[in-house]
Amino acid sequence: MLLSDYTFQTVAIGSAILGLISGVLGTFAVLRKQSLLGDGVSHAALPGVVLGFILIGSKNTEFLLLGALLSGLLSTLLITTIVKYSRIKFDSALALIMSVFFGLGLVLLTYVQKIPNANQAGLNRFIFGQASSLMRRDVNLMIICGSILLLLLIIFWKEFKIFTFDSEFAQSLGFSPKKLDLLLSLMTVTGIILGLQTVGVILMSAMLVAPAVAARQWTNKLSVMAFLGAIFGAISGIFGTAVSSFIPKLPTGPTIVLFASLIVLISILLAPGRGILHRLYRQKHNRSLNIERRAENDSTI
C-alpha cells in the first residue's frame, strides 16, 4: 500500500511542509509586490551552496543550506541597496543580481569540479529539485525551521500586517519599517531555501506565488488568505507527490507545480465575487436587467 510506504510518507510530508510555508510566506511576498523573489533568491543561492561545500568539505545538507541562506540574504541586501541608491527598478535589480550570482555559482562549481561542463547530479538536484530523494533528516529540518517561521509569523502578525499595508502609517505608530522589512525578508529567504530541495530553483517561484494568489480569490481577510495559502500549498505538495508516485516517470517537483497552477486557475475562474465566471455571469445578468428595464420604459411611453 503506497500510503504506508516510508519513502512516500517522507516525501509527502516534506512537500506538504514546503507548500505550507511557501503558501504563508508567499502571501506577504505577493502583497509586497515581491512575487519573483522566490525565483531570484533560488538562483542567487547557488554560490552559497558551492562555497558551503568548499569550506566545509562535505555534502552535509545543513551546511549547504546555510551557505544558500547567506548567499540568498546577501543577494536580497544588494537588490535593496541598488533600488535605494539608483533609478534602477526592483525587477531589473532582481534579474541582474540573480543571474550574476548564478553565474558566479557556476564558476565556483566548475572550479571545484575542474571540468568545464557543470553537469552534476548535485547541481541537477538543486535546479530541478529532487523531492524523491528527500530523507527523514531533511524533512525534520524543514519541520523545525518551518515551525520557527510560523511561530515568528504568528507573534508578529499585526506588525507584518500593518507594515505591508501602510508602512508610513506603521512608522508613525512607532513600528520600525526597516526592522520589519529585514525580518520578513529573512524569513522569506529562509523559507525559499528550505523549499529548494523539493521543487528546485526554477519552480520555487511558483510555490511562493500560486497558493497565495489562489487564496486571495476566496477571501478578503489577510489571516484567511494566509491560512488558505498554506492549505493550497500543502495540498499541492501532497497530491503532487501522490500522483507522481502512482504514475511512472512523472517527476515530483513539476507535478507539484502543476497542481498548484491548477488550483490557481480554478480559483481565478470560479471564486465567488472575484472569479471570472462569476463576473461574466453578473455582466450578462446586468445586461438582461437593462434590456428588461428599457423594455418597460418603452412600453410606458
Partner: peptide, 25 residues
C-alpha cells in the same frame, strides 16, 4: 485579479513544468 509580477511567477513555472514532464516521460 493579480499583479503582473505574480502572473509571470505563475505562467513560466507551469510551462516549464509541462516541458520537464513531457521530456521525462
Amino acid at each position: 485579479l493579480l499583479a503582473e509580477d505574480a502572473a509571470i511567477g505563475i505562467v513560466f513555472p507551469l510551462l516549464f513544468s509541462i516541458a520537464i514532464i513531457l521530456i521525462t516521460r
